[in-house]
Write a protein that binds this DNA or RNA. Structure first.
Length: 620
RNA sequence: GGGCCGGUAGCUCAGCAUGGAUAGAGUGCUGGACUUCUAAUCCAGUGGUCAAGGGAUCGAAGCCCUUCUGGCCCGCCA
């Protein structure tokens, strides 16, 4: 419909000898038709007439084009030109198309490759609610970009040679922590909740531990040491537990990258030489950074890359990885299968040990790295450096999001009095809400609710539904607001199942399922769609028709929230329809048309929810 | 001190990119709708100097500037 109007308006403009008006056509606000156009405002400037007069003249001229998808055109006194859809014709197109697998596909990417990195949690602890935001944002972005025609590689970077790893190693080797968690506790929970927190506490009372910690860190980087082997054993155990949490959330990856391997690959040396050649780094012979190699940052403090004692700083680990992701260096890695993931996709990992297995290429000209906004400064340095290093043919994007904080009530329940303020989480202090535990709580809650409503369902069915709804609830909470908004997590308030939540949306789907189930008919899509004239019917049809617009918007702006809002509006439209329009009581032709509409709704909602990793239970 | 981000209804947030119509949701509170396709729902009411001031514009919640305010970041740590 948008295309049709655009084409006709352009014809009118041509006749008027007006050109180059970048007018916009957008879905109208409630009560102003279906599509609104700002053309008159723009023409007003050129023609020096009042918007209102131009709008009237344009709508008059448009009348000869009526009879397509547009049934009426109207000039609003404000100056907008409003178009009204022929719901019957439009409905037929939308409802029939909605049954196609690729409904909502918006080919803005045209097959372009993008590499996305997300999750990247240090392998010394379990995921908490803050990590979940990263995981869910990253995974949703991937799904959206795929629907928008991009080809995506998904990476998860494992920082297995950092200080935080040294901390738990020290706990195991010097403080006598058992390598086995108490019965029933996941290994990642144990490492984070017990070993990490208590080891860190000890630094206060036993400062000499700091030296041991630094020693351990050095030995890890060495690679051949016993410590490095032990570290690898511990981190891979933690990693495997962390991945279980991610899979539980419905997330999957293509490849795992390990920081230890980046370090041992000596990529840094090669890149450092190139950076020198390209004059992107500078050796300081005086000043506060005397004796260091620094990145020349414009308008900011220079960043030390190589210390005066000739060792590299940690950012020197990030640069090779960024360059590798952009395909700016020769790939030093081999690949092995890590394991198959629950969704059937194989997860690979890099290795430095040569093998004959096929090589993969996960690099792209565009890389998106999902990291929270606290790292913005460092990511900025890398972004500008990569732009120069890649001679502007490569694009490194830091997809930043604000952190998740704890409400004062929730912090209180964890034993911290914040004086009524929300507070940042801290792994070190044990101040966080664990992801698995939140999912457990949600599962329990949704299980009770579902059982209450469906007492006749089998236990395993109920559990399956509860799992679905729990994951959906958490995922939706994590993306429904803008990335630049802090999420203040409250263990009671954030887990509501009513209003603008995932269960609300899923419930609409379940209601639709029951209509179809009870109708006992197969839909005939050669239906009399012109019978769907009711305001609730046409509102639903129109909302279904906007999926591709939402996909485009979300993909162009890397904004998963757009899809969440769309799903919600779809559910609202359906619930309005459900409450006011009886499907099963209608006479045959109308019944069939309405059943088709219900099918269209389900198909569309399922596709939309899939973009944010949410399932659609038939019952709940 | 410098940088980034936020400030819209009691609370949580859309709307801001690309200025235009009556600033919208959820939640809360008040009232109403289940012998009906599942009430995790729907309907109605309540609730707003769009932080403040200035500027450009025919027109600003939106753009520019200033101020106030909250958060985060600023190591030869990782």
């Amino acid at each position: 419909m948008l295309d049709e109007i655009r084409k006709n308006l352009l014809t009118i403009l041509e006749q008027q000898k007006i050109s180059d008006l970048a007018f916009s056509l957008e879905p109208a606000k409630e009560g102003f038709g279906d599509v609104s156009c700002n053309i008159a405002f723009l023409a007003a400037k050129a023609l020096k007439q009042r918007p209102n007069e131009i709008a009237q003249s344009i709508s008059k001229q448009y009348e000869k084009f009526l009879g397509g998808l547009v049934s009426k055109v109207e000039a609003h006194p404000s100056g907008y030109v409003n178009f009204y859809a022929d719901v019957g014709k439009l409905g037929k197109i939308i409802i029939v198309q909605s049954q196609e697998d690729d409904y909502g596909f918006a080919n803005v990417g045209a097959g372009t490759k993008i590499t996305v990195e997300h999750t990247s949690v240090n392998p010394n602890k379990a995921l908490h609610i803050g990590h979940v935001r990263n995981v869910v944002v990253g995974d949703s972005i991937i799904r959206i970009l795929q629907k928008a025609g991009y080809q995506i590689n998904t990476l998860n970077y494992v920082d297995d040679s950092g200080l935080q790893v040294a901390d738990i190693l020290l706990g195991f080797t010097h403080l006598g922590f058992s390598q086995e968690p108490p019965a029933g506790q996941k290994f990642d929970h144990y490492c984070g909740d017990e070993v990490y927190v208590k080891t860190t506490e000890k630094y206060q009372t036993n400062p000499e531990l700091q030296d041991i910690r630094n020693q351990i860190l050095k030995e890890i980087e060495d690679g051949n040491s016993e410590t490095a082997k032990f570290a690898s054993k511990i981190t891979s155990r933690v990693l495997s537990e962390q991945l279980k949490t991610c899979w539980r959330l419905g997330v999957s990856y293509d490849c795992l990258n390990f920081e230890s391997e980046i370090v041992r690959s000596h990529l840094w040396k090669k890149i450092f030489e190139k950076l020198k050649q390209m004059n992107l780094v500078k050796f300081e012979s005086e000043g506060k950074n005397k004796g260091c190699w620094v990145i020349l940052a414009e308008g900011e403090e220079d960043k030390v890359l190589v210390r005066s004692n000739d060792t590299a700083t940690y950012i020197a680990k990030d640069i090779p990885y960024a360059a590798w992701k952009l395909g700016l260096v020769e790939d030093p890695f081999y690949y092995t299968k890590y394991r198959d993931q629950p969704n059937g996709k194989t997860l690979y990992q890099t290795t430095l040990i040569p093998n004959d297995l096929p090589k993969h290429n996960y690099a792209s000209n565009k890389v998106i790295t999902v990291i929270d906004s606290r790292q913005a400064r460092l990511q900025n340095i890398i972004t500008t450096l990569m732009a120069k290093f890649g001679q502007n043919k490569k694009e490194y994007v830091h997809l930043s999001y604000e952190s998740v904080t704890l409400s004062s009530d929730t912090a209180n329940s964890l034993g911290l009095d914040t004086g009524g303020k929300s507070t940042q989480m801290s792994g070190r202090k044990g101040l966080y809400v664990n992801a698995d535990k939140i999912l457990d709580t949600l599962e329990q809650k949704t299980l009770e609710e579902t059982k209450k409503r469906n007492p006749e369902l089998a236990d395993d069915t109920l559990h399956q539904i509860a799992k679905n709804v729990a994951v959906a609830t958490l995922r939706y909470e994590m993306i429904k607001q803008d990335l630049d908004k802090i999420i203040t997590f409250d263990t009671t308030k954030s887990l509501s199942l009513e209003g603008d939540t995932a269960p609300y949306i899923q419930y609409a789907y379940a209601r639709a399922s029951r209509i179809i189930e009870k109708s006992n008919t197969r839909p005939n899509f050669d239906a009399k769609f012109e019978m769907l004239q009711d305001q609730y019917e046409s509102a639903l049809v129109k909302t279904i028709g906007k999926l591709d617009l939402a996909v485009q918007d979300a993909a162009n702006n890397l904004s998963p929230k757009v899809i969440a809002k769309y799903c919600y509006s779809l559910a609202v439209s359906f619930n309005g329809f459900y409450e006011h329009v009886r499907v099963l009581d209608a006479e045959p032709d109308l019944l069939n048309a309405r059943i088709c509409l219900v099918y269209a709704f389900q198909s569309c909602l399922q596709k939309a929810l899939n973009l944010i990793g949410i399932d659609t239970p038939q019952r709940m």
